[in-house]
Design a protein around this nucleic acid. Structure first.
Lengths: 219, 219
DNA sequence: AGAATAGTCTTACGTCGTAAAACATTCCAC
DNA sequence: GTGGAATGTTTTACGACGTAAGACTATTCT
């Protein structure tokens, strides 16, 4: 094929550009569609070219996770504003993650203890320390909030009405149209919930957690 | 190869036996090792034989998820005992899930709105209704607790010291031996936490959530 | 200019999920 | 009993996957 770039010519790839393309492909077509060949095609390059910037696909996936994890700036907290600060931070992280629903599974599937993640964690513990929390307490808090964000995003906004997971396979059964006669309570719960806006369940749990943190702080 | 069963002879497979074998293989060798061929070999059968009991690998995976989700019996709750009942139930589910760490990623990666899951959900909403929670509130609660269980299990008991994820790829960096000079707070948090036992962080978040539920119930 | 280096491509291997069809066994109506 | 029909298993095959090995070219350094 007559391409505009002949063999050996550099394609101008670098790690950030590859990560951006990988996230774009995953957003558009799902995690299952993210193969090295597919990603190469997205960038006008053969699959093996990518291995000069990432040693393996696993490393690339870790990079994607870190990209998302680090995107939200760490808030500055003190004794007076920590609840609001954490609330804002958690909401921002949720927005961030929810903007890439196809990445949630990925995030959950890898520890991703990378440079950037560790730095962010350290900064968060420092900020929470300023609000009066000991490091191990702060770690509890960060984990609880991450829990909330990830699972809320994983399950989708609706009551298990997950947003068509991504072309993973043939499990597209939505919760919206389940038989009301067999699951009356579930049906009603789903109906009631849809009226409350997509983040009501998230906010409910967030409030519960923040209240619990406050109690733990004084004890 | 002279096998004891010639072509066409039934191997005595059925769906539950296949599910058990699939879970066993995954427990032992990780999710990545669970291929149809490998699973067939485990049962003394070719891969394609499994397709008479499950239409696709996805269906088999959904079956595995349901098997775990349904294992814990739904507690009977009323106005006086719901906090203790939920605590016990949530701990039991955690034990259940934690006994199969290699399945956690799987659970998180599929909605799994299957027959058994829906029935269990309906029963839970009924029980929470007896404790004074409206269906949509009950759904909030169930989701929050599932969140807690799954992410706690996903991240491992320790502070990101995940239990060697499973042979997924080359990301085995433990959090135990990170450079203390660069991440002093994180290091201290991890050290402090290890003394508290593996479920302390889980119990912390669980208490926070239950307290929050109580507040939401009266309001 | 010549050598080293870095980025890309080609080829190849062993794996995967599963469609299609051949084949053996069991079951049921007669 | 006997002859389909139904059921379960194997065989074979196809197109994807991640990536190792090595060829090739463009750039950079001396």
């Amino acid at each position: 094929m007559s391409r505009s770039r002949s063999q050996g010519q550099h394609a101008g790839l670098d790690a950030p550009a590859i990560l951006r393309a990988a996230i774009a492909v995953t957003d558009r077509e799902g995690l299952a569609a993210l193969s090295m060949r597919r990603l190469g095609a997205e960038l006008g390059v053969e699959a093996m070219a990518l291995y000069h910037h990432f040693p393996s696909k696993a490393a690339l996936l870790d990079g994607m996770v870190e990209e998302l994890a680090v995107a939200t700036p760490v808030p500055k907290l003190d004794e007076t504003n920590w609840q609001d600060g954490l609330r804002t931070y958690t909401r921002a992280q949720l927005d961030n993650v929810a903007a890439h629903p196809n990445l949630v599974t990925l995030i959950l599937s890898r520890p991703a203890v990378t440079e950037g993640n560790l730095r962010m964690m350290e900064a968060l513990l420092g900020s929470l320390g300023g609000a009066g929390f000991a490091p191990s307490q702060a770690l509890d808090i960060v984990y609880a909030l991450n829990t909330l964000i990830l699972v809320h995003a994983a399950l989708g906004s609706g009551a298990a009405g997950a947003p068509a997971p991504h072309g993973d396979a043939g499990q597209n059964s939505r919760l919206a149209e389940l038989p009301a006669d067999r699951y009356p309570l579930l049906t009603q719960a789903v109906r009631d919930s849809t009226g409350r806006g997509p983040t009501a369940r998230f906010e409910f749990t967030l409030d519960a957690l923040l209240a619990g943190f406050g109690a733990a702080r004084t004890s």
